[in-house]
Design a protein around this nucleic acid. Structure first.
Length: 568
RNA sequence: GCGCCCGUAGCUCAGCCGGAUAGAGCAACGGAUUUCUAAUCCGUAGGUCGAGUGUUCGAGUCACUCCGGGCGCGCCA
């Protein structure tokens, strides 16, 4: 199924060819309803190239445009814009087609890729905290959207389970561990011993040295240390799983850092042999003398003491994802501070001859009300678990007040969907690069661009169908007479234009904004156009519009990883 | 010092490849409800897009300079 935008774009190309003009600009959604539904500035672009008057060029293009089957007569406006206004019958027809389509009109990508998406990436022995929200939620949404568009997706959780911190964790385990506390709250206890050891080692060189020794023993395969490490990993993974369960996040694979251990010596050897790496001050480094911005920033892949670091692991990870997983595209949803690091990794990969499409997808920070990085009152990272629990509790309180008659099981279910949805949507509805201020009141508000507002639109649809007692029947004609009906139908047709756009620059907020506008259009329709009380055939038509709204909302929110309740 | 990101209404934010008179939401003010869930809708008011210069028929968007904030820059991850 073709969108109006693509259809008009094609017809524009035909017209340009017939008018003997070269390809110029695309057809885009109109910038303002005054100008109709779609517009093109092709005439402006061509007039400039050819030194002609824009409006004359526009007239010439219009003379060859054959769009009467979808659009009213195109008009020239302003400096030389060509405006298209869709015909109500075309909108009705398109909406009907979408109604009959499982994919709601969204086309599959014409060039499907195999994409490894690396997101989340928590660290073992450290609790997940607010800082993990953006990578996790953004990565998951991108994975869902890319998958829906027909790409083959591998969601990979690159868990940090092999860092230097394990020297400290193991030393702490051996010297400070409180067994009963470990039984009660494993992660809390591991974090406690890690923190305390960290403090001791900064003030006491002998502790620091002992930790280093524990790390060396671990890395050389000492059974005792390995077993402690293993237990920490397992306990942490259980903790992660609980949070992923709450968030409804699912990975296809979880290749932790330690997975790459035995590949690291080969990586360094290979890079040395090929001349990409060289020895400098005892360390093995890769220099980028021909890349100005990296010229004075070498990448160390083996430390002077012979140890490997995260750059080595990341080079091995690239190998694995391309050679073993056979991917042609790699997306890394990792914070902006690592931009330089990934530039180096990508540069190394290119020197090795890899042609895969690498994207480092960065994002801004989450700030507290004080506009500084969000922390607890005592200055620590806010544990993600606590934050999500609070979201659900706050949602529960609102439900309790607004709709106290719901059953206990319903309340529990709805509170989860609203609370978790609110946190996710608040994140995804904003441009990923902006730092945003975390605010419970704003994200849980029933008004404005929030998850609860969108969920409410869906709930209203469901409510209509509960009252109707039956799903919308099959119809062969939509009746679009009221402005609110036409606007809603147009909006529904745009879903297929919006979804693929998200991947242009990894902006789920484009989809979020669309869903907000859809909810808006639906609420306006709901106010202006009674559904159940209207006479046939208007009633059936409005039921169909309602059903389609519900389906688009459900699918759209699902692509963002957000669930919808039936009541709220 | 070098590099990256951000700066848009009182507040929180949209504005993808440069396009028409810069848009929402919140808060403020004024209306609509014996409801298909008012958890909503309609309206009013609110702006030198951090500052400046340049490119262009056209700049919030591109280039350069400056100001302000955040982050990064050989053996942590």
């Amino acid at each position: 199924m073709e969108t109006f935008q693509s259809l008009l774009g094609r017809k524009l190309s035909d017209a340009l060819a017939k008018a003997g003009l070269p390809e110029a600009a695309d057809v885009t959604p109109a910038t303002d309803p005054r100008f109709g539904d779609y517009q093109t500035n092709a005439a402006l672009v061509l007039a400039k190239q050819r030194g002609e008057k824009p409006r004359d060029v526009a007239e010439k293009i219009i003379a060859h445009l054959k769009v009467s089957d979808v659009s009213e007569m195109p008009t020239v406006a302003g400096a030389g814009f060509i405006n298209f206004t869709l015909r109500a019958e075309s909108i009705a027809q398109k909406a009907l087609e979408i109604l009959a389509d499982d994919r709601l009109g969204v086309a599959r990508s014409t060039s499907p890729k195999k994409i490894v998406i690396d997101f989340g990436s928590p660290n073992v022995a450290k609790p997940m905290h607010v800082g993990h929200i953006r990578s996790t939620v953004l990565g998951d949404a991108l994975a869902r959207i890319a998958q829906f568009l027909g790409h083959e997706i591998v969601r990979d959780n690159h868990i940090g389970d092999w860092g230097t911190q394990f020297g400290m964790v193991i030393w702490g385990w051996k010297n400070l561990l409180d067994r009963p506390a470990l039984e009660r709250d494993p992660i809390g206890e591991i974090v406690r011993i890690y923190k305390e050891t960290n403090e001791r080692s900064t003030s006491d060189p002998t502790v620091r040295e002992a930790c280093r020794q524990e790390l060396v023993k671990l890395q050389s395969g000492d059974p005792k240390n390995f077993s402690i490490w293993k237990q920490c990993v397992e306990l942490s993974m259980q903790d992660f799983e609980r949070i992923y369960g709450l968030l409804d996040i699912h990975y296809d694979i979880q290749r932790s850092e330690s997975f790459y251990n035995d590949r690291l010596p080969n990586v360094v050897e290979r890079l040395l042999k090929s001349g990409i790496a060289e020895i400098s001050e005892g360390a093995v480094c890769v220099f980028f003398r021909d890349i100005p911005e990296l010229a004075d920033k070498p990448c160390i892949i083996r430390k002077r003491d012979g140890g490997f670091n995260y750059a080595t692991t990341d080079v091995a990870t690239v190998d694995y994802r391309i050679n073993d997983l056979k991917s042609d595209t790699i997306w890394l949803v990792v914070g902006a501070p690592q931009i330089l690091h990934f530039k180096q990794i990508f540069a190394i990969a290119r020197r090795e001859g890899y042609t895969a499409d690498f994207r480092h997808i960065t994002f801004g920070s989450i700030l507290g009300e004080d506009r500084k990085l969000m922390k607890t009152r005592s200055g620590e990272n806010v544990p993600l678990r606590d934050l999500l629990d609070e979201a659900v509790q706050r949602a529960r309180k609102i439900i309790e007040k607004k709709n106290p008659d719901l059953s206990e099981t319903e309340k529990i279910d709805i509170a989860q969907k609203i609370g978790i949805g609110a946190v996710k949507y608040y994140d995804l509805s904003q441009y990923r690069m902006t730092d945003y201020v975390f605010s419970w009141d704003r994200m849980l508000s029933l008004q404005g661009n929030t998850a609860p507002y969108l969920q409410n639109a869906y709930v209203r649809v469901r409510s209509i169908f509960r009252k109707a007692g039956a799903p919308a029947g099959k119809i062969d004609k939509l009746i679009l007479r009221e402005v609110a009906e036409i606007n809603l139908a147009k909006r529904l047709c745009q879903f297929a234009e919006v979804v693929p756009q998200v991947l242009n620059d990894f902006r789920p907020n484009i989809l979020a904004n669309y869903l907000f506008e859809l909810a808006n259009s639906f609420h306006a329709f709901y106010e202006a156009c009674p559904v159940l009380k209207s006479e046939e055939p208007v009633r059936a038509s409005r039921l169909a519009l309602s059903e389609l709204t519900g389906r688009v909302m459900l699918r759209g929110l699902d692509l963002l990883g957000i669930k919808v309740p039936e009541k709220m």
